[in-house]
Design a protein around this nucleic acid. Structure first.
Length: 688
DNA sequence: TTACCTCGAGCTCA
DNA sequence: CTCGAGGTAA
């Protein structure tokens, strides 16, 4: 034998380390997930320190799944982007927040599956909808390698380091798990942990969090994992993403419930409130039962989720665009609170639209402090009859936008004046008029109105338009108020001194703005078009116009008829574009911007794509053998056709499926051509 | 719409 | 220390 290398680990040290890791994993699972520790904390700490000591001596033996690695991460300077192997889809929300809303889901599923009343009740899994943030955990060969936020569903942020600090997330899985396993679930904060955290924050003189969800979201977004580790987070698994079985064999699970049970056996926390239920009545009962338990749960939920249990039925049901047809989120009714109306302000938008906004005494509703609620327009304000001084019920509708539900009339005092929209713009004093058939009043001041000028500049400078980095609303306010900017081209004529004279604008900031302006000159036609702020021309239309014409001048000179030839441009949009470029001052702005050096690469007009169905109108009736209604509609529209709701002389074809109704009779009366699904497919292929 | 985190930079006071 | 901008999330 040669002289032993003094620094090599003894064989039994390596084994001891492996064994410590294993034991610590087991106890961590009992402690964090099962909430039933079997050894004293001190004993756990002793083993943990022993492993730490061994790892300090043999850093090469540290494994990424070692319990000591939960807090070892380094401070990041930003989160990396991660593309999800399988997109993280969103779940459709049932709009009816009565318990009976659950029946809609059951009815929809039965209809999609072609079941009748005599067929037996369907099996569902019902689970609470946790109020936290969605997370996807990727395990390869049983080791946690990546954790990502949901992002836009396709691409999220890599928050692996922070996820490792969450005790309930296993770092390694038992042998025999799939080689690739993505577990999806919700990171959240328990209410008691949230309270304790806020107590601690208070005692440290640091700011407290408004609600558990925001505290959890904040923790996950920490660049320093050491801070994240001090925020007590929890996790519930509710599904999977990519799964590659070791043997690459057939389906791993038959039902969603099996899947959850397996995840549980592998060490993931799965809610004990997850239940198998049958048929509409049990869905309703589940919703009611969870609603009653809600306050006592120890964590926040905002509803329940129903899923079809059978995975084969799930795949049979498939997806509508990005949402699975086999699941639905059923939220509890939005929380409502009483507050008073302090004032009704009128805001002026970019297009001059006047919007009444109720200024409210601050109330805490559904986790946030609400102080504003839009009243949309005069009719809406009158319909609700909101007046200054009124006591009103507010809620957060559809999750986010605060809404005045109603006025408590018996609490009204002094008979305040009915709200009327001012006939003059509150900012510039120009006449405000309401066109025939329109709901909105508009300030007629145009660019004379400083509010509209500000909005126009902000719109032009935003990221999705020409992007002037660092130019936000406060700065635009200052510049317009100081009179150093009036029109868009003025932006590019700004001098350093004029800028540097503004508040909080010293040399460095002024130079940054000038650099950003210089950079923004090189842009693209769609961005520029969008940035002009032509009514009804959003990003999509700007792109379509740019693609169709290739250059700006032909767009400025196009007749309404020529504009109508652009995909998705109808008479209203065409007229709006024409009106915009008919105004001399708008053309002047464009010329001056070009003269200031704003430029883009112009292209060639795109040949009008051969659209096999353009100009033709279809009406769908009955159930088609393979295509869903939405799918058929999308296919027809993609081929340039239109789908109408009822049959008339102008209808080109009626597409009839099984159990076609009166529309088929009407087609025959009018002599409209009738085709089946196969016939439709031929038409779709026809010109392609 | 509100809340959170992060960054760069200006302001304020020692 | 404070502010504004910019990003993310629900």
């Amino acid at each position: 034998m040669t002289t032993p290398d003094l620094f090599a680990p003894e064989p039994d040290e390596a084994a001891l380390m492996a064994q410590l890791r294993q034991t610590l994993h087991e106890h961590a699972h009992r402690y964090y997930v099962l909430d039933a520790p079997t050894i004293p904390d001190a004993e756990y700490d002793r083993m943990f320190r022993q492993l730490q000591a061994l790892e300090a001596r043999h850093p090469e033996l540290i494994t990424p799944d070692s319990p000591t690695q939960r807090v070892g991460g380094k401070v990041l300077d930003q989160f990396a982007q991660v593309r999800h192997a399988l997109p993280m889809l969103s779940i459709r929300t049932e709009t009816d927040t009565q318990a009976s809303g659950a029946e809609n889901f059951d009815a929809r599923i039965r209809r999609e599956l072609g079941l009748t009343d005599v067929d037996p009740a369907l099996e569902y899994v019902a689970e609470p909808k946790f109020d936290g943030l969605a997370m996807s955990l990727r395990f390869e060969h049983g080791v946690l390698v990546q954790a990502a936020t949901r992002g836009d569903g396709e691409v999220g942020e890599d928050v692996t380091q922070n996820s490792r600090t969450i005790g309930q997330i296993p770092l390694s899985l038992p042998a025999g798990v799939p080689t690739v396993l993505e577990v999806r679930g919700e990171v959240y904060m328990r209410r008691d942990d949230f309270e304790a955290l806020n107590d601690k924050q208070r005692s440290l003189g640091q700011k407290t969090f408004v609600n558990p969800r925001n505290a959890a979201a904040g923790a996950v977004r920490q660049l320093d994992p050491a801070i994240a580790a001090r925020r007590p987070l929890s996790f519930f698994a509710y599904g999977v993403g990519e799964v590659t079985p070791p043997d690459a064999g057939g389906p791993v699970w038959q039902t969603h419930f099996d899947l959850l049970q397996t995840l549980k056996s592998w060490g993931f926390p799965v809610s004990s409130l997850v239940k198998i239920v049958h048929g509409a009545a049990e869905l309703v009962a589940y919703y009611e039962s969870i609603g009653q338990q809600r306050d006592g749960l120890g964590f926040d939920i905002d509803g329940v989720v129903y899923k079809v249990n059978s995975l084969s039925l799930q795949s049979q049901l498939g997806f509508v665009t990005r949402e699975p047809r086999w699941a639905v989120a059923h939220k509890f009714p939005a929380q409502e609170m009483l507050t008073t109306v302090l004032a009704i302000d009128v805001q002026v938008g970019r297009t001059g639209k006047l919007t009444p906004v109720a200024k409210l005494a601050p109330v805490f509703v559904g986790g946030v402090t609400v102080t504003n609620a839009t009243l949309h327009n005069e009719d809406e304000a009158r319909r609700k009859d909101v007046r200054v001084g009124d006591t009103v019920i507010v809620r957060r509708a559809g999750d986010v936008i605060p809404e005045v539900v109603s006025v408590l009339l018996d609490k009204r005092v002094d008979d305040p004046a009915i709200f009327t929209m001012p006939r003059h713009c509150p900012v510039c004093g120009s006449a405000a008029v309401r066109e025939e058939g329109e709901a909105d009043y508009r300030c007629t001041g145009g660019l004379f109105c400083s509010a509209q000028r500000k909005q126009a500049i902000l719109h032009f400078a935003q990221r999705r338009a020409v992007e002037v980095e660092g130019l936000g609303d406060k700065l635009v306010d200052q510049m317009v108020d100081a009179g150093i900017i009036n029109t868009l081209p003025d932006l590019y004529r700004l001098g350093f001194t004029a800028l540097a004279n503004l508040a909080r604008m010293a040399e460095k900031s002024a130079q940054n703005i000038l650099d950003a302006l210089e950079k923004s000159k090189q842009t693209t036609l769609p961005r520029f078009l969008f940035g002009l702020g032509i009514r009804h021309v959003g990003e999509a239309t700007a792109k379509a116009l740019a693609r169709h014409f290739g250059k700006l001048d032909p767009i400025m000179d196009a007749s309404e008829e020529e504009l109508l030839a652009v995909a998705d441009v109808g008479p209203i949009v065409a007229k709006s574009i024409r009106t915009f470029f008919d105004q001399a001052h708008n053309r002047e702005v464009v010329e001056q911007l070009r003269a200031c050096g704003v430029n883009w690469l112009e292209g060639e007009p795109a040949p009008v794509a051969a659209q096999p169905l353009s100009g033709q109108t279809f009406v769908l009736t009955g159930t088609l053998p393979t295509l869903g209604r939405e799918e058929a509609k999308a296919l027809i529209e993609a081929a340039g056709g239109k789908v109408a709701g009822s049959v008339s002389k102008k209808t080109s074809y009626v597409v009839a499926g099984a159990e076609a109704g009166s529309k088929l009779d009407r087609a025959q009366e009018l002599g409209v051509a009738v085709v089946d699904e196969a016939g439709l497919k031929e038409l779709l292929d026809g010109g392609a």
